[in-house]
């Protein structure tokens, strides 16, 4: 096993009819642990932030369960404490989360079966869910394995947020920097995704250039601009390589 020796309580003994589902649930749990390493501490930080902003602890559970969009939830707590108008809330939610429209291009929703399952799968289509389900090793995952994976990640976020809100006062103020877990998670996900592409160096380089340009030119809309520049760069590259092969 290529993982830390984390001991966990095993799942309940499998009933014969649902053995495949149990196997999916267990495999999904293993896949979800790396994301859990980031979502749990980040959820804790979110819960602490909720109570420190003057909201009751259970709002941390409500936010994490119903909205389930990490970075935006931090912003929403700030807006709600400042009594921001609902229109401003809607516009901010749109701008922060509009990047998700790009995920429909490769997320394997066609493999998720059933209307309600598809509904949950799109609801829980976070950056992390996207990253794990579009990786090379995920090509063979079944509907239930994808859903279990999304449910575990949702649970880490809700559990971390609730625990943080309840225990917030116990964490000393001098301990800071837990939020780096999210950066570390995306560093790992980026390394893995680049590894999946093997020799394809231009793709990450295009993305890096797009991100840096967006950061310098449009810091307020960095993600949206970066995704758009990156997509435009990929399309330009496809046109260029097509022309080259046509001439050859």
């Amino acid at each position: 096993m290529n993982a830390l020796p984390v001991t966990v309580g095993g799942p309940p003994p499998p009933a014969p009819a649902s053995r495949a589902r149990t196997a999916d649930a267990l495999a999904a749990f293993k896949d979800s642990r790396s994301v859990g390493m980031a979502l749990l501490p980040l959820g804790l930080a979110f819960g602490v932030f909720v109570t420190h902003s003057g909201l009751a602890w259970w709002w941390a559970s409500v936010f994490t369960t119903v909205i389930y969009a990490g970075s935006f939830e931090f912003m929403l707590v700030g807006m709600v404490s400042a009594l921001a108008p609902l229109g401003a809330v809607a516009v901010t939610a749109f701008l922060v989360n509009v990047r998700h429209v790009f995920y429909a291009l490769s997320f394997p929703l066609d493999r998720v079966q059933g209307r309600r399952a598809k509904a949950y799968s799109t609801f829980a289509l976070t950056d992390e869910a996207y990253a794990l389900t579009v990786s090379e090793q995920a090509r063979s995952w079944s509907s239930s394995r994808i859903l279990w994976l999304q449910a575990y990640m949702h649970l880490y976020w809700v559990g971390g947020g609730t625990a943080g809100a309840l225990l917030g006062s116990l964490i000393p103020d001098s301990v800071t920097g837990l939020d780096f877990a999210l950066t570390a998670l995306f560093a790992v996900l980026a390394l893995e995704a680049i590894r999946d592409r093997r020799g394809d160096l231009p793709t990450p380089v295009l993305a890096l250039l797009g991100a840096l340009a967006a950061r310098l030119l449009f810091p307020g809309q960095m993600l949206l601009v970066a995704f758009t520049l990156f997509t435009a760069g990929l399309l330009a590259r496809r046109l260029a390589t097509r022309k080259k092969s046509a001439h050859a």
């Binding site: 790009f102 291009l105 490769s106 950056d127 996207y130 990253a131 579009v134 990786s135 999210l182 950066t183 995306f186 560093a187 996900l189 980026a190 893995e192 995704a193 680049i194 999946d196 592409r197 394809d200 793709t203 990450p204 295009l206 993305a207 890096l208 797009g210 991100a211 840096l212 950061r215 960095m222 993600l223 970066a226 995704f227 990156f230 997509t231 990929l234 399309l235």
Partner: peptide, 17 residues
């Protein structure tokens, strides 16, 4: 696009972090 986007999107989110 869909085969190349994951690697790029992870890089972009990392820079965003």
């Amino acid at each position: 696009l869909s085969t190349r986007m994951p690697a790029g999107i992870m890089v972009i989110i990392l820079v965003y972090c």
